[in-house]
Structure formats: structure tokens, C-alpha cells
């Protein structure tokens, strides 16, 4: 296997693994948020900002891997 093929395979695995983690965390957050809104609909407005910020931090983990893949891709020969 060439280096590029190996890198592509490793990149896919790394992205998939990090996406599993992010998706799991985001799903948990969103489900709890929905529960909270269902119990207290008036609080929906105040929950939006912390919820979005929390989701963004989880999303960022996958995106960091994505960015690293692109940064390192230039070094593979």
C-alpha cells in the first residue's frame, strides 16, 4: 500500500471515530434539551444560547480532526 492510500484509510477511520463521539454527545444534549423544553416550554428561549454553544463545542472536536486531516494531507508523499 502506498503512503497516500494508507493516509486516506487512516483519515476515514479517524473522522468516523470522532464523529461517533460527537454525535453521541450531541444526541444526548439535544434529547435532554427537548425533555427540558417539554417540561417547561417557557424556558425554550433562554435555553437556546447555552444549548447551541454546547453543541458547537462538541461539533468542534470532529472538525478539529477534519482540519488536522487536511493539514497533514499536504505532508503525505
Amino acid at each position: 500500500m502506498t503512503g497516500v492510500a494508507l493516509f486516506a484509510a487512516a483519515a476515514i477511520v479517524a473522522l468516523a471515530a470522532s464523529a461517533i463521539g460527537s454525535a453521541h454527545a450531541q444526541g444526548k444534549t439535544a434529547s435532554h434539551a427537548m425533555d427540558a423544553i417539554g417540561r417547561n416550554p417557557e424556558a425554550a428561549g433562554r435555553m437556546t444560547v447555552p444549548l447551541l454553544l454546547g453543541l458547537a463545542f462538541m461539533e468542534a472536536l470532529t472538525l478539529f480532526v477534519f482540519a488536522m486531516v487536511f493539514v497533514l494531507a499536504g505532508r503525505v508523499s
Partner: peptide, 13 residues
């Protein structure tokens, strides 16, 4: 770093 990477990676991705 995190602020810029998040925005860039989202749009570029």
C-alpha cells in the same frame, strides 16, 4: 485556535 478552526472547518467541510 478553536474559534477560527470551528468556523473554517465547518464552512470548508
Amino acid at each position: 485556535m478553536s474559534l477560527s478552526l470551528r468556523l473554517y472547518a465547518n464552512i470548508f467541510g
